[in-house]
C-alpha cells in the first residue's frame, strides 16, 4: 500500500507541475479536474497491477472459446483466416451492426450537411 500511495503522490505532482507549466493561468476548476483524474488514474493503475499478466497463455481470456475458433474454425467456416471467420460467420451479426453503423454515419452526415 505505501508504494501505491507514493506512486499516486508522484503522479499527481507530475500532472500538476506539467499543468502549471503549460497553463500559466491555472484555474481552480482545472486543478479539481486534474485531481479527479489523478484519483481515477490511481484506481486504474492499481487495477492494471492486478490484471492477468500480459502475454501469458494461461490467462482467463484464452479459454475454450478461442481454442474452438482456432481448432475447428477451418472445418466449420471453410476459411483459413480465423479472424475473418469470426467476423463474418461466428459473430456475423456484429458485423451487420457495423455495416449499419457506417450507414447511420452516412445518413447522419448527409442529413446534417444538407439541412443547414
Amino acid at each position: 500500500m505505501p508504494n501505491q500511495v507514493l506512486m499516486i503522490v508522484i503522479l499527481a505532482a507530475v500532472l500538476l507541475l506539467a499543468a502549471a507549466r503549460f497553463f500559466p493561468r491555472l484555474q481552480l476548476r482545472t486543478v479539481l479536474t486534474l485531481a479527479l483524474l489523478a484519483v481515477i488514474g490511481y484506481f486504474l493503475l492499481i487495477t492494471v497491477a492486478e490484471m492477468p499478466l500480459f502475454g501469458k497463455a494461461v490467462n482467463p481470456a484464452h479459454n475454450e472459446i478461442s481454442l474452438r475458433y482456432l481448432e475447428q474454425g477451418v472445418a466449420e467456416t471453410g476459411v483459413i483466416n480465423t479472424v475473418s471467420g469470426i467476423i463474418t460467420d461466428y459473430r456475423a451479426f456484429d458485423t451487420l451492426g457495423e455495416a449499419t453503423v457506417l450507414f447511420v454515419a452516412i445518413a447522419a452526415v448527409i442529413a446534417t450537411l444538407k439541412s443547414h
Partner: peptide, 8 residues
C-alpha cells in the same frame, strides 16, 4: 479476405 490478413 478469407485467405489472408485483410477483408472487406
Amino acid at each position: 479476405g478469407h485467405l489472408s490478413p485483410g477483408g472487406g
